[in-house]
Amino acid sequence: MGYVWQLWADGPTILIALFEGALLAAVLALMAAGLSLVFGVMRVVNVAHGEFYMLGAVAAWFIASQIGGSPAVSFVAALIVAPLLVGALAAMIDITVIKKVNYDPERTIVATIGLLYIIQQGTLMGFGAVPRAVEPPFDHRIAIPWWEKVDGVWEMYWPWGLSISTYKVFVIVAAIVIISALRYAMTHSKAGLIMRATQLDSETAQAFGIPVGRVYAGVFGVGCGLAALAGVLILPIQQAHYLMGGEALLSSFIVVIIGGLGSFGGTIIAAIIIGMTDSILTIFFSPIIAKIVATLLVALVLVFKPTGLFGTKRQ
């Protein structure tokens, strides 16, 4: 019984941990959905995926700082333009680099490792090593009440620090809307049908008039655009920095390996598991413990279910 009361007493901290976990899950889900989409359709492991996340944040900072004025206007412009720019750049990279190695699984890994360094060092040269911040378009605090038993009577009170940011709520809601829209488009639109047919059998898809090369360029653009979108959304919370893609890439790989490479639903569920676990362990223990547990989870999944929790063996 004592444990229950202790847990109740820790309730406000747990609530904050869950909220921060939902935020992390939202960003991870966007990132990992892009990585999973690219692998699912093209069988390409994009090692440079984190750099497109970084490019999204950097491009958003550049756009917002050029527009200036109201933070809301400049941020909305960055939110729309930056992912489109990064997506277009990614589609060009697909045509000029990845297509040239015939989408061969091993050679694309080497090619995207090269891209990782080119994008990272190119950004360092053009953007500098100084982290850049962007003001959130809005940021109010919403206080959350809690209850405590005083002299046998439950009393509501407002614990100090128990509040959530409206901007963070916006990021979570935006990620849910974007991922739901992506899922709907994949299953209900003509473009989604073309992508799924290409994913299942690209040669037969061509024999029925599907321009597989253009589909690949589009998928790579959309996948990297999703990473860029995550980078823009996180920018007012973190800062844009040329090295920010590394950890994002690692987390995305953890998510897609646990969820199952190419499994959209598995990726989202894994993002929630990793986001929540990371946040709770970070708050109650330490970030190092959180990383150890996430890595351990990956190891366990690779040993006991190499295709991931929701992945299936592909022919």
Binding site: K190, L193, I194, R196, L200, D201, E203, A205, F208, G209
Partner: peptide
Amino acid sequence: YIPQGRKLFGELTVAENLAVGLQT
């Protein structure tokens, strides 16, 4: 084209397989 081994898009429905054929 009717390829050897049928090569249907197995995870797609019958209607979706036909829709792929109708692309052009």
